[in-house]
Amino acid sequence: MGVEQKLGNMGVVTTTLETAVNWARTNAMWPMLFGLACCAIEMMSAQAANYDMSRFGMELMRPSPRQSDLMIVAGRVSRKMAPVLRRLYDQMPEPKWVIAMGDCASCGGVFNNYAIVQGVDEVVPVDVYVAGCPPRPEALIHGVMTLFEKVKGEKFKDLVKA
């Protein structure tokens, strides 16, 4: 009992290639296992028992940037860390996305001083900003869903680099 019986013999589905590819990308997005500070603990909570982000096809946190599609910048980025962060971003294969998780990654948060980069968008291009200090796991999941919405609307011609 399911969609098969309602529709009969469904041999061919027509859709655009873009939709199919974007659908596949959203449902198997592998984030990079990359925690910086406090938000990393909430990111772990989002992965753990109560919130379980693997419901959205994100159970695989890859420690290697070469295998990941999504960088969640979880925490404050110091001036010493910024070049490392950029290097990790450059090592990720295209297409790639960035979520700035938390206030520190989005705009510097409470740390308006010499040591912290005031917003990680000065180092890498950010797709989704998640507010909160730290954001609750639900907020992170909402951020991820927002990113999915964005990815679903992406056009191939915009992704091709000149």
Partner: peptide, 11 residues
């Protein structure tokens, strides 16, 4: 160390 230096003491 120092990759997470936040400048808390100064701030």
């Amino acid at each position: 160390i120092g990759y997470l230096h936040t400048g808390v003491e100064k701030n």
